[in-house]
């Protein structure tokens, strides 16, 4: 899609939603959810012999726009003030190990009022529709499906066409590849798509593809994801294959797979999970194999405690196996 056309689409949709929301029958505070979301995360990276902390405080909002004949769409906005303390390696959003920043997580509008045969249209900053993350939200949690490592970014600015149909759901996005920046950086872009069975079912199967260029690295991916739930047990997996081209090394094959076994107690208060992660990059001498075990415990409606421990099974060339222990307490008010 040409940049001018893309910007026109975004401008048109934003104008349309802004205009229609002023005339719709509900005022802005109606159908609005919002909460304050604060968290403290303590990390101990054994391989780097480093202990760090991450503090986050933000506003999480969700608003349904309506007219007398039904819903027009909804918007999600999540703005977080995030402070690092001695955190290495420094995440891309920050400039130093003790930096602090305002971070936009999800911020998008999804227009849903079209006829049944037309897809919904989402504009904004959203999670790339790929793999398990499409139906399991991990924002602000220790649980992770490693979107960022596999695709180059977890969230990106752009546009998506999405729909839940009677037996299938799909989401196709074109994003700018600028990650936190709402623009294309040095020709960056990402076309991402996932089609799958309905995500609330006991057995979910999805197929995802990505073709993009993010941080100067061209990426191609195809992935299969699945979820199977039986009573309080869940068995999940994602298998992605593809290649990266960072210009210095040329195209390099990459394989990534994750298998998760989880157990939720019957009142949903405690969730335990164990993951096996396999990542094979052709340029590396050996494939990374990691095990991640964790839990989240919902102490009350507001408080959640979670812990996780990652341990690398294989010995990398550096000789330092990855070992990471994390604890997080989260409060939503």
């Amino acid at each position: 899609m040409k940049p001018l056309l893309f910007k026109s689409c975004i401008g048109y949709l934003l104008f349309f939603l802004a205009a229609i929301s002023t005339t719709c029958y509900a005022n802005f505070s109606q159908n609005l959810r919002w909460s304050l979301d604060g968290s403290f995360r303590l990390n101990h990276n054994e391989s780097l012999d480093n202990t760090s902390r991450i503090y986050a405080l933000g506003l999480d909002t969700h608003k349904v726009f309506t007219s007398p004949t039904g819903d027009i769409g909804y918007g999600v906005g999540q703005l977080y003030y995030t402070k690092l303390s001695n955190h290495i390696p420094v995440p891309f959003l920050f400039t130093s190990k003790d930096d602090s920043e305002f971070i936009i997580r999800e911020a998008h509008l999804n227009y849903t009022a079209g006829p049944n045969w037309l897809p919904n249209i989402r504009v904004g900053h959203f999670t790339l529709p790929f793999g398990l993350e499409e139906s399991i939200d991990t924002n602000g949690r220790l649980l992770d499906y490693y979107h960022g490592k596999n695709l180059g970014t977890k969230l990106d600015w752009g546009l998506s066409l999405n729909k839940v149909m009677s037996h299938l759901e799909y989401n196709v996005s074109y994003t700018l590849g600028g990650k936190d920046k709402a623009k294309s950086v040095d020709g960056s872009y990402a076309v991402t798509a996932r089609i799958g069975s309905l995500s609330h079912l006991d057995f979910v199967l999805g197929l995802s593809v990505l073709n993009g260029k993010i941080d100067g690295i061209s990426r191609k991916r195809i992935a299969l994801d699945w979820q199977y739930y039986y009573t309080t047990w869940g068995l999940l997996g994602e298998l992605a294959i593809g290649e990266n081209n960072n210009q210095l090394q040329g195209w390099q094959e990459e394989k990534y797979s994750l298998v998760e076994l989880n157990k939720t107690i019957i009142n949903n208060q405690l969730k335990l999970y164990s993951q096996f992660i396999f990542r094979d990059i052709k340029s590396q001498e050996s494939a990374d194999k990691l095990v991640n075990i964790g839990f989240s415990y919902q102490i009350s409606t507001q408080f959640e405690l979670s812990m996780s421990g990652v341990k690398q099974i294989n010995t990398p060339v550096s000789g330092k196996k990855k070992q990471l222990a994390r604890v997080q307490i989260r409060y939503r008010y």
Partner: peptide
């Protein structure tokens, strides 16, 4: 000013469309 909220992030909310 805030009232009780959901324990999960709002970006995970989905309408039961089907």
């Amino acid at each position: 000013l805030s009232s009780n909220v959901s324990a999960i992030a709002y970006c995970s909310l989905r309408d039961p469309v089907s």
